[in-house]
């Protein structure tokens, strides 16, 4: 399955260049048609790159979050991270609407960092009688923050904007409006460099300390990676749900939890899944589009149910 995804990825990426309302055929590119090249350079190319970067980095930080929280159900949207990032984006949009995208990302990151830190702090104080308590704490936290954001958006007439940010959508991606996602891609590489630390952190604080690693520093590094990537993705293309949950769990099932070994697969499968879902969204009611957030939501929840129900293989065993 993973190997198939790896082979499929380049094919999907190529197909992605030629699917859309404006007609571009491979022949046009070969004939060096300036219009066709222009379309690919300005719209289809950036869109494909954005899908790959967002898909890979979202799945990667899902894995990191699961190691930090030592829980299979933890990912940025079940730990309050995404909701805090949205709130940050909303607050900065109200306070300083003229700020450039980079500044908005900084604000969303700050909120996401504070939110994830709060989540981990709550986890330390809550008796964890069941692994399900972890995502429940995160979802409750996210729900409260979401309610605050909705209230503010309601009073400031920004409900529509909030709704748009909450649903990942790549149809607006153009050259010049997605490049921040390269930051997310770079951070996914940083996560890979530090992969061993996250595997060790996933085995607990005592285990980490015994091996001479600073547990707190690993937590801070992971927290920063998760928060920045979540914020960048949310601000640039919106929330892509379930990805950070489903992809790492599928990979864990097939290849285990040695992050050094699994992270390339996580990134590949994450990118392939988002790309496939976006293509589906572009084609399902052509020439109109269904936002990728909706498609991933549907596909992801089906995959997630399948994971939960495969108890005999150990996937249902969590913790």
């Amino acid at each position: 399955m993973l190997v198939a995804a790896a082979w499929l990825l380049p094919a999907l990426a190529v197909v992605s260049l030629f699917v859309g309302v404006a007609d571009v055929r491979p022949v046009d590119l070969l004939r060096l048609d300036p219009d066709a090249w222009g379309l690919v350079a300005v719209s289809r190319g950036p869109r494909t790159a954005a899908l790959l970067l967002a898909g890979a980095s979202t799945a990667v930080v899902g894995t990191i979050m699961q190691m930090l929280a030592r829980n299979r159900f933890a990912e940025p949207s079940t730990t309050g991270t995404v909701e805090f990032a949205l709130l940050g984006l909303l607050v900065v949009t109200i306070a300083a609407p003229a700020l450039p995208v980079a500044a908005k990302i900084v604000a969303a990151t700050a909120f996401a960092l504070a939110g994830t830190a709060l989540f981990l702090a709550v986890l330390r104080r809550v008796p964890l009688r069941s692994p399900l308590v972890v995502p429940l704490v995160g979802i409750v936290l996210g729900g409260v923050v979401s309610a605050v954001a909705t209230f503010i958006a309601y009073r400031t007439d920004l409900l529509q904007a909030l709704g748009a940010w909450s649903t990942g959508d790549f149809s607006g991606v153009l050259a010049g409006r997605y490049e921040t996602l390269w930051v997310a891609g770079a951070l996914a590489v940083v996560a890979y460099v530090a992969a061993d630390r996250f595997t060790v952190a996933g085995l607990g604080e005592a285990f980490t300390t015994n091996l001479g690693l600073d547990h707190r520093r690993t937590m801070v590094l992971g927290l920063v990676l998760v928060s920045v990537v979540s914020a960048v993705v949310v601000v640039t293309v919106g929330v892509v749900p379930f990805l950070g949950l489903v992809v790492p769990n599928v990979v864990s099932l097939l290849r285990g939890d040695d992050v050094r070994r699994t992270l390339p697969w996580v990134a590949t499968l994450g990118a392939a899944l988002v790309l496939a879902c976006d293509l589906l969204g572009r084609l399902v009611r052509y020439p109109y589009e269904v936002p990728v957030g909706v498609v991933v939501g549907v596909v992801g929840s089906v995959l997630f149910l399948w994971l939960l129900l495969r108890r005999d293989t150990g996937a249902g065993r969590v913790g």
Partner: peptide, 16 residues
């Protein structure tokens, strides 16, 4: 209280 939630192989664990 060594934790075993992670799916590591025995060799991976020992290698750590």
């Amino acid at each position: 209280d060594a934790h075993v939630g992670s799916r590591l192989t025995v060799r991976d664990l020992v290698t750590f």
